[in-house]
Design a protein around this nucleic acid. Structure first.
Lengths: 196, 196
DNA sequence: AAATATTTGGAATGATCGTTCCGAATGTAG
DNA sequence: CTACATTCGGAACGATCATTCCAAATATTT
């Protein structure tokens, strides 16, 4: 009975995410969203609810993708110290390839919306939790393999790595140059070396 | 001949800054600005130009104040290692005292506007330059006093400190708790220790 | 006290905001 | 081929946006 939905939902989500990512929540209008996705107003409201609902879908889409990429990295790159370096190096390449200087959608959203929107704040808190745990798990693994000293607890080092990671996303937005970004990583990762 | 301006310009700037800081550029309306400052629309346009001009004044007001506070700290706290720790500790106290979870206006503005507004991007770049230089100068001073190892160049360590600093402002926005913030600082400042 | 230059409050403007609504289009089921 | 459930395009809605404008208020100078 129902007429089929004609568009590819994931493709729409990808395009909407790209726009929100580039312009932020408040500066993005439904009009721009229709142009970016190719959908009419009605279709967006029908399929995704209003602007806020659509944004939440996009934000989750983004963070899931980000977290998935990092988990995949762990599958390929076994030695933990190399893996951590690879994760940060990957972030640098992403920043340098980002022609629109979008930065990180989660960081952008955090600074723009966390103190004004509880639903968004919840996603931000969850992502922080996940990232800290991911890094902490890697650290624990590296400590067990005696590649990382055990002077500091995995959770503490994980938090530090996540903080450095967020910082890079901000830094790259005003200065997307390889040298300073890699300088920062060099110093940050030196805390994992020796001293055991 | 001229009727006097009845308001205190700095007080107006302070209140407008507080509002932009809390809500960001796009989410702040001229209507809210009139309520926050007590001025009428005409007075704002007369004395400060439009919304964008006023925002630039506020942003400069904010960054000048921030940079001034750090420079003042250097005057009081002579030993460099203690001074750096004090600067980061001060940031933590600021985050914990920030009931509105405003975070850092410069970081917020960077992530919201840098890829959409050249004038703002210029201020962000200038502030980054100043902060890196400030930290680098402190590092150089500490190295000369043999309080900090000389394995890494002042500029490199300065960049790292600035990155950690920015990261904390983001972190504190979603999780304004003392423990994790101080964990991060502990790890970050450990890169300045020994090893010479 | 009168004249003047400026500020001030508030109404008005046109644009744009997010959202709703409805008739037309369209694919499926009988 | 008819009936129907749903999507779709685009007009329309009220609210709000940044900005402009003008008459009233006011402090200084004459």
């Amino acid at each position: 009975m129902p007429k089929e939905i004609l568009f590819d939902e994931e493709e729409v989500l990808r395009r909407a995410t790209e726009l929100f990512w580039t312009r932020g929540y408040n500066a993005t209008s439904m009009d721009e969203l229709t142009r970016a996705t190719g959908l009419s107003r009605s279709s967006i409201y029908n399929s995704f609810g209003g602007k806020h609902d659509l944004f939440m879908r996009c934000l989750r889409y983004y963070v899931n993708d980000q977290e998935r990429q990092l988990h995949e990295l762990a599958g390929k790159m076994k030695p933990v110290d190399q893996r951590i370096r690879a994760a940060f190096q990957f972030a640098v390449e992403e920043i340098l390839a980002d022609r629109m200087r979008k930065g990180c959608m989660m960081v952008n959203t955090t600074t723009e919306m966390v103190n004004q929107d509880k639903a968004i704040a919840a996603v931000a808190a969850e992502n922080m939790e996940n990232m800290e745990k991911l890094f902490a798990d890697w650290i624990r693994e590296g400590q067990a393999a005696r590649d990382i000293h055990t002077t500091l607890a995995p959770q503490v080092l994980g938090r530090f790595l996540f903080n450095t990671y967020s910082g890079l996303k901000v830094y790259g937005k005003t200065r997307p140059d390889r040298k300073p970004l890699e300088d920062i990583i060099t110093v940050a990762l030196s805390v994992l070396e020796g001293r055991a």
